[in-house]
Simulated assay, not measured.
Amino acid sequence: MRILHTGDWHLGRTLLGADLLEHQAAFADFLVDTVRDRAVDLVVIAGDVYDRAIPPVDAVRLLSRTLERLAQTATVVLTPGNHDSAARLGFGAGVMHDRVRIVAEPARLADPVLLADDHGPVAVYGIPYLHPDLTRYALAPVPDEPLARSHQAVVEAAVDRIRADLGARPGHRSVVVAHAFVSGAAPSDSEQDIRVGGVDQVSATVFDGIDYVALGHLHGPQRVGDGDRIRYAGSPLAFSFGERHQRKSVTLVDLAADGGVAVELLPAPVPRRLVDVRATIDAIESGAHHADADAWVRVAVTDTVHPERMYARVRDHFPFALAVTHEPAERPERVAARAVSATSDPVEVAADFVTFATGAAPDDDDLAVLTEAYEAALQTLDADGTR
């Protein structure tokens, strides 16, 4: 059976204010074409389909249309992640088309989606994101004796239920789609912290006996442990500059007759590269970084003194700059800030701010401008009779 494993789409998310929906739609087109061209039997989406519990309307429309297109050629099994609202994402799951199955209820996680190929039956189970505080009672094997308050406890209980169901299905190969942080995997800086009681991880041994474990939550594509039996597909787009070196992909899995797996990573389309630039304003304007003009750029201008019209000048050369900051390469040592009181000299306070903002103390001309501005303000107050 050929499986395409993906997840962590985060539909509706932005990148430092840049709308990503157009690029997420391009990924959806790539996904649909891949499923058709590579004769995929099963698509598994391992949670965080949306970026928040109440997603924007355009994101809902994109998901609806994508599922409709995928279901024309493959079966789709989807589980909610910690960013999704399981109740909202799972609405109507009971009456959906047989080719789209949303597993959103913890109480039904041991009810598999049953498929078959030339080598026999395959049982596909979905484990939605399980918050310990919300599921430790429902998944407890003994009523009124809640599980420990940890991700390890609730996910382990969920997989125990799945193994019990598998035990009654001899000859079935197994696939589990789960949204969790499994020990041994490497996180990125854009995933939401899911710690409860100071712990957010689940041991990989929880999934012993499962032929393929399709994980979601971590944004970097990777395997967990030895071999390819347990994998994160990762997110299709970079959602922070911390992910700029990750090679985004979807995971194509061939499930053999004996339950073995062969994996191929298919590169996802890259809408724009993410690049960090640290340079003086003269270096930027010289064209030294012209090759990055079409990238999403995070720019640190390193001049000692804050350049005039810094932001506009940077944008002239980097039209897709998402962040522009002034970070002097040789910032003078800063003295402790002075407390501001009713007796503080306003010109001195303003001079301190100039030093903080530009990295250099104001010269005599600057101080003359500050003094003139302060005195003009005083005259205005006197004229209004408010002082």
Rank of each mutant, 00 (worst) to 15 (best):
Y125M: 15
R2P: 07
V263E: 02
V32C: 10
A351P: 02
P56S: 12
T79I: 14
D133G: 14
A321I: 06
R61G: 06
P236Y: 13
S286E: 14
S190L: 08
T355D: 03
A238V: 03
V49T: 11
E327V: 15
V155H: 01
T14R: 13
D84Y: 00
S190A: 12
L42F: 06
R387V: 13
D365A: 14
F318W: 08
R315Q: 10
F353L: 15
A376H: 01
L42W: 06
F356E: 13
A268K: 01
R173Y: 07
H131A: 13
L109A: 12
G227L: 13
R223F: 03
V43G: 10
Q379G: 12
F27W: 10
L252F: 10
Y232F: 14
W9Y: 13
L70M: 08
F318T: 14
E285H: 05
P141F: 11
A185H: 01
H219E: 05
E333V: 14
D345P: 05
F318H: 07
L67W: 02
D226W: 00
V261D: 10
A158H: 01
L16V: 07
A312W: 00
R61F: 01
F356C: 15
D111I: 00
V277C: 14
P307W: 12
R278I: 09
A180W: 00
D292T: 11
V324D: 15
L31Q: 06
G198P: 07
G260Y: 04
P141A: 15
A71Q: 05
R272P: 08
P187S: 11
A18Y: 02
D37H: 04
